[in-house]
């Protein structure tokens, strides 16, 4: 096997070594980016002429919703890698990512509600974007519940991988079905190639820094949780071996 291939990190031992070295700098970098981006965003940007100070919740809201969908996408890819190539680290990474993604979804919903109250005059509106996020939240719940429910680890990994693939299709379908079902009041995309609908330049840079911070935070937490899952797996293997030798 070629040593300079990405698959060599699928070896749990190699993964543990490399991620062990990578974690401290990643944690420091994500903290730095988050502090810098949030400080800049909260205190050094002008107030919006319509929304006032409440516009600044965007610096938490936008990165967390992007990461919420991004995490599901990462879980889909990890599930497919597990399903095709049977790398345990990949399955465990998908499992480890789910609670992080769920938290991002919840943060997106909560910050959206807090921002929506003064701006739209309501905590909650059955708007397509809000609704599809709520549905995404339900998908995260189901995925995590299935992991919890099945005892045999490989069966659990396989079944959750199947659920993740099917769930992705249905999540996408729901996303467009709710567009059909209700007209939205939500703002257009904050980041997009279409310059017209982007946020103003004064906000773009701190927003980008916040986004990088959230991304680094996700990678840090993901590595941390995957390492914990691998260690749990090792403990289970050791316990099983002990029981075998006792018997």
């Amino acid at each position: 096997m070629a040593m300079n291939s990405i698959w060599q990190y699928a070896n749990p031992k190699r993964f543990m070594t490399v991620s062990g070295y990578a974690l401290p700098p990643l944690a420091v970098a994500s903290a730095a980016f988050l502090i810098a981006g949030l400080y800049w965003g909260f205190f050094l940007t002008p107030e919006d002429f319509k929304q006032g100070t409440s516009v600044k919740i965007m610096f938490v809201h936008v990165p967390s919703v992007i990461m919420a969908t991004g995490t599901w996408f990462m879980m889909l890819i990890a599930s497919l890698i597990w399903y095709v190539r049977r790398h345990h680290v990949s399955a465990l990474a998908a499992k480890a990512a789910a609670p992080i993604g769920m938290t991002f979804t919840l943060m997106g919903l909560a910050t959206g509600a807090i921002w929506g109250q003064p701006t739209w005059g309501t905590w909650w509106e059955w708007d397509p974007q809000l609704t599809s996020f709520l549905i995404l939240f339900l998908f995260y719940l189901g995925y995590m519940a299935l992991w919890e429910a099945i005892e045999e680890p490989d069966t659990a990994a396989d079944l959750t991988a199947v659920l993740c693939v099917v769930g992705s299709i249905f999540a996408l379908l729901s996303r467009y079905a709710v567009l059909f079902w209700s007209q939205g009041i939500h703002q257009a995309a904050s980041f997009s190639l279409d310059k017209e609908e982007n946020v103003d330049n004064a906000y773009a840079l701190p927003l980008l820094i916040c986004f990088i911070g959230f991304m680094l935070l996700f990678i840090t937490l993901l590595l941390l949780r995957t390492r914990a899952e691998i260690r749990l797996r090792r403990v289970a293997a050791l316990e099983a071996r002990e029981r075998m030798s006792d018997a």
Binding site: L173, S174, A177
Partner: peptide
């Protein structure tokens, strides 16, 4: 919990 979210498009 698994099935009901999958029913969303059909329901809509």
């Amino acid at each position: 919990l698994l099935v009901l979210p999958l029913y969303v498009p059909t329901l809509i």
